[in-house]
Design a protein around this nucleic acid. Structure first.
Lengths: 204, 204, 204, 204
DNA sequence: AATGCTCCAGCTGAGC
DNA sequence: GCTCAGCTGGAGCATT
């Protein structure tokens, strides 16, 4: 009869049970380490793999939000370092501004993209397809655009151009607050959608 | 004379010393938590702030490498989700391919950017400056470009176009190995530059 | 006016603030490590010092309870290894049994300590003051005592005698449950006394 | 052929592999948590169980050393709180002293155990079998004994007597250093015996 | 001296 | 909402 077991017998049973299960757990942990070491031996970076695995546990919406927030913060600190804001970040920043502008009027003719064309880039052998413009000029243009009420979408520089990120940073630097005391674009919003089983991971 | 102290006196001294210093450490930790809570109260996301603080401890080169590796891995997994590869990632991917093509000959006329112009986006009200093309088509184009030996720089889609990321992903998907058993673009390279005091952080 | 600061300026301020405070925190952490290294250099064991520091953060009552629980569990598993139960552990074990016996009557003449005397140990040069008895016999005696309803206090062996711990283990092994389904002696009871500032540490 | 896989295919494979193994790891971790919760539901203390599990991973020798070191440190800090030193701690403390005394001569007539008998304890209802002596007196006696070159084994008080621990503390407090600058009794010595498979755990 | 390993403080995500 | 266990990153340590 089980209920008659002395506390000591119960304890021994639980301890043995725990030891067995913990051994399994440790074995599983070692399997994981081994797999990671295998990936490393194949030339992949373990740290980046960990990051990727963590990201894959999130929903695409959560992933986008995180990247957007991170980029917005980095832009505000002047640390974009050549990479333009992701689209989600632009959407957030613009959304906030729109909510400010909306009551009055729609934002008029936004950015007639200046006559800069991506231009040739006929044979950019090892370099990036960059133009000759100084990114600092682009940063100043971004500041001016923000001061003039232009939207973050009005960045005229093409992809791959360091000026694009510099313009973004300049815009973020000068953009006025929308009057709200809390900068909505800097906050998290999305909630993990109630943990249903149908997983919506990124494709593999 | 100090050397005459008994072991017990030494121990008591060390323990008292450690307790005092640990109290200071804990006070400092609480200060940090308080500062973070203050930032949170001001509307900023604590998690993102931690990420930013960690990134700021790195050199710009290290930051770029991390972002590039992460993007390359995500691209390979089809998880770019609308954001194109950072330039550093393109440089890495192309560098590797170049080292393969180099022995034979330079890669001929790269990508005459097809006649898609960014065009229009005259008043992109709340949407991104996107075109009407299906990103899946762009992904297929990227695959074809990789199969044809095109370079990652030959992505014809402009910034802010979801097709740009899709093309990148397709290219990464089909790109052949350069024959080396270790995918150089997937590995870390840079070393922290010997820990000198002159810090080269991003601007604040 | 402070409220007019743009979100970006707020962010920059918070980040700088956090970086400064985190530098202080790290400095404090390094001070602690240095102090611990100093203690180690003086011949003290860092791991044990950490344990001691943690124990000193507890109230004496909490310390006793922890040690008692740990000893009770180890006794039940036969891992006392020569050290008898602490008094607090005896009190717990006896208290539980008393609550069982109480309804009927007081426990009669407990253990007439058998005529074992510590036996002089006139000059136990490097050994412990142990007797010649086999601890296994003592363990069996403990089992018999528990079966006979003896109390844990009735252990007849003196301090420093391995038989004392063996008797305790035997007693724990055979002791019947008090009928309650939850072994009260195996559970925590005390609460940290509401965290008031007047600290009641052990003496230093 | 496997070697022909593109880096991307390798990465996908590794990531899927890692995700699968990590799922197993997490499942194992949940099993463990469930088992611990079961033990808790049965009335056992999870924290103490964790401590016990960790101790059971050590060899008996390592366990003894840890307990001895901890007790020695606590004794030096006056935190024994009623529990006397474990035998291993006495052995260490005495061993050190012996090595000091050895060159000259063996320690003469050690402790003629004074005529204190455990004193019946005929029916110690809920109290411990304590005597009427003030532990502070015993502490002072311990100090005097240490000053007089007595050994730690010479503690005259019986098990279960608070005076026993007090005498130990007093002895530790006054004991002179053996002249060596490093207190050997305060240091770790034993090495985990080379990690052979034949496990020598405590009995279960 | 460099490298791998082991351990610990701190952060993250769940559970009450 | 808070606590708390698991995990990660980094530092210290031993080893070659």
């Amino acid at each position: 009869m089980r209920g008659m077991k002395t506390p000591r017998e119960q304890l021994v049973h639980h301890v043995q049970n725990l030891e067995r299960i913990e051994a399994e757990r440790q074995a599983a942990a070692e399997d994981f380490s081994a797999a990671l070491a295998g990936a490393k031996a194949a030339g992949f970076d373990p740290g980046t793999l960990r990051v990727v695995l963590r990201l894959r546990k999130l929903t695409p919406g959560q992933r986008k939000e995180r990247r957007a927030l991170e980029a917005i913060y980095l832009a505000a600190l002047g640390m974009l370092e050549g990479d333009p804001l992701p689209d989600e970040a632009r959407r957030r920043l613009d959304e906030e501004q729109q909510s400010r502008d909306m009551p009055g009027k729609g934002l008029s003719e936004a950015g007639s993209p200046p006559s800069r064309e991506p231009k040739a880039t006929p044979a950019p052998p090892p370099q990036l397809p960059m133009n000759l413009k100084d990114p600092e000029d682009a940063r100043q243009e971004g500041r001016a655009a923000a001061a003039a009420g232009k939207r973050i979408y009005d960045n005229p520089y093409p992809a791959g151009d360091p000026c694009r990120a510099a313009w973004d940073e300049g815009w973020c630097e000068k953009k006025k607050s929308n009057g709200m005391d809390t900068p909505a674009a800097y906050q998290r919003r999305s909630k993990p959608p109630e943990k249903n089983d149908k997983d919506e991971k990124g494709a593999a």
